[in-house]
Structures are given as C-alpha cells and as structure tokens.
C-alpha cells in the first residue's frame, strides 16, 4: 500500500497494516521536519508533488522491493502541504520473516523514494525567506544573476 495524503500520517495504524503472523520483523521509518540544516533554522516545510507520477513511482518501488526481498507487507505514506516542526512527512513500514530483510527493504524504499518520486519540499526559513530544495542545485541568491 502506498499513498499521498494531506492529512497527518497515522503511523501507528500504518505499522499495524503491515503486521502479520507470517512476519517476524517489522521496521518503521519516519521522516520528520527538522529545525536545523547546518546553521539555518527552519520554521516549516511545504511539500508539493506531481501526484499521478508520484503514485506510479511509489508503486514501482514497492514492486521492486518485493522482487529483491521476501517482504510480507509494505506500507508507505507521504504527506503533502504545510508541515510544522516535528511533524511526520513520510512513513515507511515493512514486514518480513526476518529482520535483515525488513531493514534492507525499508532502507531501499526510503533511499529510492528520495531520488525517484516527484515530491519537493520548500523551506520556510526563520528569516522569512522561502526556498525550494533541489539536491545538486544551489539556491539562487537574491539579486544574483550569475
């Protein structure tokens, strides 16, 4: 099960969704809104997505994880919209017969999500400026055309 949602993520319910008598291991990863990036202070994050493709890519990731590990269940939920400090932006829950498989599949899912699924975050900095986060591209400096 993979989804995008504008509502707070119920990660307890998400974890229950993957629990099974067939699985001896359950791993839950949560991404949460962090206050400090280096010495810059975040007030909030805004998440946007290209929803049709994001949903397709999340389903693709689930299928790829199932090909590589004997996963029992997978549940991924990514939040969109305005998130305050500490809120959960993404939850990845994986169950498998043994813990190594669950950890590895969970690591694969969150790592690939972050490079492949069309979702973007915009920083709301404490100094009042906002800035889209695009790994590998420096933010354009105000008034700087170079």
């Amino acid at each position: 099960m993979t989804e995008l949602t504008h509502n707070p993520i119920d990660y307890t319910a998400l974890t229950e969704q993957v629990r099974s008598d067939q699985a001896g291991a359950v791993v839950l990863f949560l991404g949460t809104v962090r206050e400090l990036t280096g010495d810059r202070q975040t007030i909030a994050l805004d998440y946007d997505a290209y929803p049709e493709m994001a949903v397709a890519k999340l389903a693709e990731l689930e299928a790829e994880a199932r090909e590589q590990w004997p996963v029992t269940e997978i549940a991924i939920s990514h939040r969109l919209g305005h998130l305050e400090l500490g809120e959960v932006s993404v939850a990845v829950a994986v169950s498998a017969p043994h813990r190594g498989q669950a950890f590895e599949a969970g690591r694969f899912l969150i790592d690939e999500l972050k490079v492949r699924v069309p979702i973007w975050k915009k920083e709301n900095w404490a100094d009042g400026t906002t800035e889209w986060v695009h790994p590998g591209i420096d933010a354009p400096a105000a008034g700087d055309s170079t």
Binding site: A49, M53, L113, K114, V117, P118, I119, W120
Partner: peptide, 28 residues
C-alpha cells in the same frame, strides 16, 4: 517525464505530447 516515466534527452516527442519538467526531487 512522459506518461509518468522519466525520459532521456534522446527521447523523441510526438505532436501533442504532454511533457512534465522539474528540478531534482526532495521528498522524504
């Protein structure tokens, strides 16, 4: 991207194509 999949620079576009463009993603 075209039809929900990434396409390389060599990809040939059709008339009427719906294309999507965006900078590197930052979900999570």
């Amino acid at each position: 991207a075209v039809d929900n999949d990434y396409v390389p620079d060599a990809f040939v576009l059709n008339d009427g194509a719906s294309v999507v463009a965006f900078p590197p993603v930052s979900g999570g």
